[in-house]
Design a protein around this nucleic acid. Structure first.
Lengths: 353, 353
DNA sequence: TCATTTTTGCAATACGTCTATCATTTTACT
DNA sequence: AGTAAAATGATAGACGTATTGCAAAAATGA
């Protein structure tokens, strides 16, 4: 490890070929005899040559152009995601990343599709989109792929579409984890679990619920109440939750696979004073779920770590743009928050490198 | 975002000064009139200039030379850490990172100190070391700082030393989290918690234990058994654990803040058949803790995410080497594993970018 | 105003890779 | 052997920044 690292010129000299030939080999331009190719590869091996990406990027005037498309609205989770993206954008500017963040109306697959079409002409290398089902979107995704633009799904996957990878948590696993925690919290005693979700048609919510069910089968002393569909709206969740708690006084645990948690907490606070509070598991650490944890109104929050998701989006899109093999993308593991391991700030801030 | 980004030449032209003057401003070389400096900064602002790090690194032939020092031994956790470091090293090679991983005898502060002294002469930019207390180490750390080498502590902090940052989990929080889980698993019923640690003199273990104690105070129905000192050895842990379980049949939960988990599981398996298994919380997801989770011999594993630690070490050392402000380093949040959210492979593999 | 100091401009070289062109050599095939 | 095709060599400019030495200009002070 003394002085300097070998350059491609060193490799060429050692292989007994010209720089041009060595370059043809390492950049796979073809038109190289098998014998020369082998000698170059041997020289690379022997010298421990590694391509200098700084020099390469400079020579190519490489600019990575990526876009992330998020649904609009006042959703606290996506607000957090947006903040993380803004920070990531600034951090990556000096390395010639052009990371734009676009917003489209939520659940509007037609608008999303036309927005994707717009990106195909914008000289973009890769796109990450929060998956929305729909034939228009699938068709737009296919057109994108045709235009050489790489596509990832973020947070929520979509089925048919031609996406390179999904970046997000495994929602079945998340539901199973919630179920395991609820099971533990009953310590073998009987109980009744009330599931809440946004809509049964939302894939991620349905997955979480099925994970919950699978694990609760381990504890026959636990029964499941009929699920509440809250449309991710605080008002609807609050009203339906009040009704459910009144109708069924035996409920010992609540799992909300969706949003609308502010209403859930309000309904809980309004329960009869003599009734013990059920064990409550929610998703996403944002201002109000954090507050509810701190004050002991709920017990646990599963957080899908948007920082990690953003980091993986950038890493994966970059790998795809470089035609490198993208790293294996295992699902992100949700972080489990209780009142005792809350990070200093509203949301956890991971570092990136 | 059409064509190309502004260069420092563009900035100079716009500011009405020469390239040399603009360069003096951005690189703080002094000898620039206040007026010129202001005009350059305005031009930078107006054009949105960002320094091209690829070009800069190329021109400077920058090589980041970092070293990580790990304790030797067959410890499964550090074996995992070593594997992650090896992978990180390969991944960073093309970006001109020279990341070496050294091994020193565990708990041998004299050898560690002399090893650190060796690094001071090795033209190294930064070092991360698993903290070991001791005046020799503190003195060596000071000499390192004097030689302009940045020092981080990793996994385990050390008190007096002159380190730039600590990268690792907050062990008090980890203990509190374990305590909260144990509390939940008792669901209000009485119980007795048996704490295990390597040694009371180990700072991280002691911190975890104090966190546990703090939270268990919330549940007056839970009492604490006298802690076992297992020296992180499976044999010692097994023997003492057998004795403790025999002596005190009322134990309902076990928390091992240290290592030696293989012995712990063996002792558990040897308990009288009629005795219900206590609720068990351990640290670090490695092959045998994972297996014990899967087979239902234990309930929960707190993992300190060595991948994240390695990523932060690299990011922080790089920032320090570049004389950039290092990002705020919040403690790493341990991941909570139960049998339902285990990653596909032996250890969780996060991606880095 | 003159001497001195400070500030600025100019020019050149280097970093390692990419890209392209053109001439030359080697190989393959009839 | 002769021709076509394939492979190789030589070379040069570009990318944006760092770094340096030296000359020229401007500001400062007496």
């Amino acid at each position: 490890m003394d002085g300097k690292l070998p350059t491609l010129t060193d490799v060429a000299r050692r292989a007994g070929v010209s720089y041009a030939t060595a370059d043809r080999v390492v950049n796979g331009r073809g038109r190289v005899a098998e014998k020369s190719s082998r000698r170059v590869l041997e020289a690379i091996e022997a010298l421990g040559y590694v391509r200098n990406v700084a020099a390469a990027n400079l020579a190519q005037q490489r600019i990575y152009r990526f876009a992330v498309i998020l649904p609009d609205g006042q959703n606290a989770f996506f607000a957090r995601m947006r903040a993380i993206l803004a920070e990531t954008r600034d951090r990556l500017l000096p390395e010639r990343f052009d990371l734009r963040v676009d917003t489209v109306p939520a659940f509007d697959s037609a608008t999303l599709a036309s927005h994707l079409d717009g990106l195909a002409d914008a000289d973009i290398d890769g796109v990450a989109v929060v998956g929305t089902e729909g034939p228009e979107v699938a068709a737009a995704a296919e057109r994108l792929a045709g235009a050489g633009v790489h596509l990832l799904t973020l947070v929520s996957d979509m089925t048919a579409a031609d996406r390179a990878a999904y970046v997000g948590i495994d929602n079945v696993v998340a539901g199973r984890t919630a179920g395991r925690m609820i099971l533990m919290a009953h310590a073998g005693r009987p109980g009744r679990v009330l599931p809440v979700l946004g809509a049964l048609s939302a894939r991620d919510h349905a997955d979480r619920l099925s994970g919950l069910r699978a694990v609760l089968a381990d504890g026959p002393q636990l029964s499941l109440a009929p699920e509440i569909e809250g449309r991710d709206s605080s008002e609807i969740v609050e009203r339906k939750m009040r009704d459910a708690l009144t109708a069924d006084p035996t409920i010992t645990a609540i799992y909300n696979a969706g949003a609308g948690n502010a209403g859930l907490v309000r309904a809980l606070a309004a329960r009869p004073a003599d009734r013990p509070r059920p064990f409550v598991v929610l998703h996403e650490l944002v201002a109000h779920t954090r507050a509810a944890l701190e004050t002991g109104q709920i017990d646990m929050v599963l957080d899908q770590r948007p920082e990690e998701a953003v980091r993986r989006v950038v890493a994966t899109l970059r790998a795809l743009a470089d035609r490198r093999p993208a790293e294996k993308l295992e699902p992100i593991l949700p972080t489990i928050f209780v009142k005792d391991n809350l990070p200093p700030q509203p949301g956890p801030a991971d570092t990136g490198d």
